[in-house]
Nucleic acid binder design. Structure first.
Lengths: 334, 334
DNA sequence: ATGAAAGCGCTAACAG
DNA sequence: CTGTTAGCGCTTTCAT
């Protein structure tokens, strides 16, 4: 039931009913009796303001759009959950758009999202620079915040991880533990997240005076199949790495399975540091040493930025969670 | 930009612009010239009808609400993806609500969903019978379809799996392979999905003249922690099962890790049949024999039901995907 | 072939 | 303390 129907039932004007249900009866000095009548009747008839009328009037939809490349990817699922939970506090709902890692679909979705006049946009794009993305990001009137897959060269409001630092931390940790031959399972190297993380890894390796061996670096996408293929390539190398860093969440799943398949034991034969702390990371056997992104904090920040319509970018630091997938090895003097 | 602004720019009435953009210019015999002018200007200025005005007029929001207990759970993430993809074809968007397996939150979300006047509701509830859920499900005016966690005793439009049959298939397969001592990793036994699956398992075991040993049956929820705890209980039994069936997606993740932890090899020491085929199931080592739900088909059916506003319930059959996690054992004559 | 007007449900400005 | 009115952006009659 809507407000005017309720008003008719109670022989009141829509205005009065509206004022009561909007939660400001005292501001308009509505009598206690009336207030009570309205509230009770509203409850009884499940009456509530129609958000379309309300939105039209206020110029707000009460919804924000969330675009992800793959909701099936645990990182984005977690992100979506945190964002939804946070938005709920201000009675906003989340419209979910999944591009399936497909730029063409993403462009179409972006247009659809914008035409829906949402109150805000939290975008985790595929990672490719497109006209639609630029339009969204550069438009002063659209409260947009970019997450995860930032576009290199395009600066805009965003919430992201210091990916270089995170990659550096992972590699530095392995080096500290005596590893000298470090492999890397990458995602799509054309995306900034992946490139930055990898550059961090390379920096740490070089800084330690070690060499980067490209033959134990592989990866060309974020899908599980990509991860499996890359894992196989890395492990089929005659001279296996002593430690491997997986640069994204799907990577570790792929790698663990391939390792098991090849009968390679962790951490005895190969040590692992994995990007993205996942719910099962600590239950895994061995428990995985991970580079954890503060997903909750990042989600909250994104929501805050959208709400306040600031135009600032925030960068978070990843944390290395030490578990049991990295073994200490004796440094070989070569 | 909205239609009236565009109309002003072009010295046309909103009506004409609306008719062109609604895609029915010939129906109203709009001249080719005008049509072209409108279309081009709309493109240029990124003008599109405001969905709030449109919705208010048409009594539709162009959105359907999707409620899940946990988007982080791969099954629901996959479901969400399929539903979104399907809905997109009819230009509808998905409003995502995540109850976090919490009935109290679910009730609140349900109220919120309803008050938003959505065009349809696809609900995968926590699995508990609540006032709000009944209201939603029993209301003739709300196009609701229940999925996965049906409420026993409440019949309503739904799309679900023949869970008894699925459980039966899993157990029957193990028995065929010579297993006589079958353990079971359950979810929340108060939910119908879990109970039905378990009953199917029990039926197959009894039918084969074997006994159900409750000491190798455990589980009290759908979280990973619940799964780990249950796995430990099952495996710490002095008389270990020869085959284990996990009744939900999180269960297999928990079990695999605990098995590895305990140094139990699959399928040599213990065979496994797992509910829900997951992207990594086939890459796992050994590849997991699973009971696969036709998620895509179910999603499509749910969307179709919502669209056509039928009031029918559809039940799908699960398929056993044979892989390498079950070993054939010699039948012992006791 | 096009436009004017009404009305979807709501709230804010202006009465009283 | 409550009501009347206008207008948010759109589509659908009804006119021309």
């Amino acid at each position: 039931m809507n407000l005017s129907e309720l008003a008719a039932h109670l022989n009141l004007s829509v205005t009065t009913v509206s004022r009561v249900l909007a939660g400001s009866p005292e501001k308009y000095r509505i009598s206690e009796a009336t207030t009570k009548r309205v509230v009770e009747a509203a409850q009884k008839y499940h009456a509530a303001p129609n958000p379309l009328g309300l939105g039209l009037r206020k110029g707000q939809t009460g919804m924000i759009g969330l675009l992800v490349p793959d909701i099936t990817n645990p990182f984005f699922a977690q992100l979506a959950r945190e964002i939804e939970r946070e938005l709920r506090k201000s009675d906003k709902a989340v419209l979910l758009f999944d591009s399936g890692e497909d730029v063409k679909i993403e462009r179409k979705l972006l247009r659809d999202m914008i035409s829906r006049r949402l109150d805000g946009f939290i975008l985790a794009p595929v990672g490719v620079d497109t006209e639609e993305l630029r339009f969204a990001v550069k438009n002063e009137n659209l409260p947009v915040v970019l997450m995860d897959r930032l576009i290199s060269g395009v600066d805009c409001t965003s919430v992201s991880l210091d990916n270089f630092d995170a990659g550096y931390k992972a590699a530095h940790y392995l080096i500290q533990k005596g590893h000298q031959r470090i492999g890397c399972l990458r995602g799509d190297s054309r995306t900034a997240v992946d490139a930055d993380r990898y550059n961090g890894v390379v920096a740490a390796i070089c800084e330690a005076g070690l060499n980067v061996d490209e033959s134990i670096v592989a990866g060309k996408g974020y899908s599980l199949v990509d991860g499996v293929e890359a894992s196989r390539r890395i492990l089929s190398n005659v001279n296996k790495p002593s430690g491997v860093i997986t640069l994204n969440g799907q990577g570790i799943i792929a790698l663990m399975n391939v390792l098991h398949d090849y009968g390679v034991s962790v951490p005895e034969e190969i040590s692992i540091v994995a990007f993205d702390d996942q719910p099962w990371s600590k239950f895994s056997s061995p428990a995985i040493t991970t580079i954890a992104q503060p997903i909750g904090k990042m989600a909250r920040m994104a929501v805050e930025i959208i709400g306040s319509r600031e135009k600032e970018s925030k960068i978070f630091k990843a944390e290395l969670i030490e578990r049991a997938s990295v073994a200490e090895v004796d440094v070989e003097y070569t």
